[in-house]
Amino acid sequence: MMKILVLYYSKHGGTQQLARAIARGVEAEGAEAVLRTVPDLPPFGAQHNQSSNGNASTDPIVTLNDLKGCDGMALGSPVRFGNMAAPLKQFIDSTSKDWLSGTLIGKPAIVFSSGSMMHGGQETTLQSMMLPLLHHGMVLVGLPHSEAALHSTVSGGTPYGPTHLTSESQRSLTADEKALSLAAGKRLAAVAQKLKE
């Protein structure tokens, strides 16, 4: 069975919601979604306390073996000043051996993000996650404009990947955000299957 790694960091739960919706799309295509997260980092200047993790996720922590065993990957982060969050970047920075050995070459990938402002940097955050994936030789898969929700969304969702706009009044994914996340997961699994064949 095809295994798609859905790897993300989520501080307040928005990115985790996207990860779960993408995983449902992956599984709708008959592939296995492997949900993984990364450990939180201590605040700048503070001592790290392993027992208090600010990560909103209850999913297992990713290992480098998860990269070796996947047929494709969805990578997600909340917006941090238009960039991916430091805990996710720290994990990516630890993958040099996999880069040298070509672990991810030729495997498809998507990116996803959540943020609390309409113009807070969702698209640049997606692009910041694309760069290391390109260095790893992965095949980036976007959302084509044939997805109707791209034309109707007034919250999250871009051709670069699914996004979620969270606010005090809108904590859950909108119908369009769910539709785009499901579509992205299905598309990723379908492309992974074609590339494997």
Rank of each mutant, 00 (worst) to 15 (best):
Asp93Lys: 09
Val62Ile: 13
Gln47Glu: 15
His12Cys: 05
Lys68Ser: 10
Met138Arg: 00
Asp66Lys: 12
Gly121Ala: 12
Gln90Asp: 12
His48Leu: 15
Arg24Asp: 10
Pro87Ile: 07
Gly25Cys: 05
His48Asn: 10
Asn55Lys: 06
Ala74Leu: 00
Gly137Ser: 07
Lys68Trp: 03
Leu133Gly: 01
Thr15Lys: 14
Ser128Asn: 08
Ile110Ala: 00
Ala56Ile: 06
Asn83Arg: 13
Met138Ser: 00
Asp98Asn: 14
Cys70Arg: 01
Ala109Asp: 02
His135Met: 00
Asn55Ser: 13
Gly115His: 12
Thr103Gly: 07
Ala19Ile: 04
Ser57Asn: 08
Leu143Gln: 06
Asp71Ser: 12
Gly82Phe: 03
Glu27Met: 09
Ser51Phe: 14
Ser114Pro: 03
Pro78Ser: 13
Gly54Tyr: 08
Gly45Ala: 15
Ser94Pro: 01
Ile92Pro: 00
Gly54His: 14
Met118Leu: 10
Gly120His: 10
Gly30Val: 07
Ala31Glu: 00
Gln127Cys: 07
Ser77Val: 01
Lys97Gly: 09
His145Cys: 13
Gln50Ser: 15
Leu133Tyr: 13
Asn53Lys: 11
Asp59Glu: 15
Ser116Thr: 13
Arg36His: 06
Ala85Gly: 07
Leu143His: 03
Leu131Met: 13
Pro39Tyr: 06
Leu64Asn: 05
Ser113Gly: 12
Ser57Tyr: 07
Ala56Glu: 07
Ser146Val: 08
Gly45Glu: 10
Ala85Tyr: 04
Val62Arg: 02
Ser101Ile: 05
Ala74Gly: 12
Pro132Val: 06
Glu123Met: 09
Glu32Lys: 14
Asp98Tyr: 05
Gly69Asn: 15
Ile61Val: 15
Thr124Phe: 01
Arg36Thr: 05
Leu140Glu: 00
Gln90Met: 08
Ser113Leu: 09
Asn83Thr: 10
Trp99Lys: 03
Arg80Glu: 06
Leu88Gly: 02
Gly121Asp: 06
Ile61Asn: 13
Asp59Asn: 05
Arg20Met: 10
Ser52Thr: 14
Ser51Trp: 11
Ala19Ser: 12
Gly76Ser: 03
Arg80Pro: 03
Ile92Asp: 02
Phe91Asp: 02
